[in-house]
Amino acid sequence: MSKVDASEARTQPSSGGGEVGRLVVVPRRSYGIWIGTALTLVLSFFILRAFAVNPAFGWETAAGYLFHPSIMSGLLNTLILTVVIMALAIIIGTIVAIMRVSPSPVLRSFAGAYVWFFRGVPALIQLIFWFNLALLMRELSLTLPFVGEVFSIRTNDFMTPFFSAVLALSLCEAGYMAEIIRAGIKSVPSGQSEAARALGMPYRNILTRIVLPQAMRFVVPPTGNEAINLLKLTSLVTFIAVDDLFYSAQSIYARTFETIPLLIVVAFWYLAVVSIMSVGQHFLERRFGRSESRREPRVARVIRNAFGSRPKGAAT
């Protein structure tokens, strides 16, 4: 249709060109948008004024606590927890995802049950459960026939708050990661693994060299979201007295009653880290999408990444 119109327009002589130039376009009046804009401006004004004039926010107090040593060590712990848990969740999640696409129905069902349970039970409940594992099992021991007891350890000796936080949240997060990675594996066309089989590549090579690298492109964006979620989720460990960012703030305002300023400090640091992570995610997506985007020499990529500009015509 449009092709025909365009060619007609080109072939027909233009008539009344002068008349066309005199016509004035009057934009449609969108009263709804005007009212919405006005209301939003008024609302923003009240919010900003409340932030600015209400002394209870205690901006100076908050600024004073921003780099407080115990806040800093809390932030460090939060970051360590996030990194360790995410790393474990990716490893466990990958294993569970591979089990979910395995030919064996037993492996598939086990992995399905894993995802069902660890995604279904709230993270806080899992956290408190693992912390209280000693109530269920006093000690863990390994006994082999003919050898006798190989080792035995009291549950409370190793189920420290930090360890149970790592254990509970990585198992929980792995449930989500497994689903993300499984979707990534499914997104790789079956012809890819078929061609690899025809070339005589064994199953493990097909997974690690053909399927998983291609799945990465689909896995990275949601994994970035999961990492950001996890960073915030780690604030739950406050419940079992791991001194993360939130716990450190709590223990200060429990003494000084400067609750709001310290919550502002906590919110500030979470926002700061999330912003940095979003930037990192952006570059990871670039890295794994490289065979899809237009050809670009490595040097050009490094320079562009350093200065943060985008190549012409690249999909973002």
Binding site: P189, G191, Q192, E194, A195, A196, A198, L199, I210, P213, Q214, R217, S291, E292
Partner: peptide
């Protein structure tokens, strides 16, 4: 060796 209708080169 095997060749496919849809080529199936490793796209990454």
């Amino acid at each position: 060796g095997m060749l496919f209708q849809s080529f199936n080169l490793f796209s990454h």
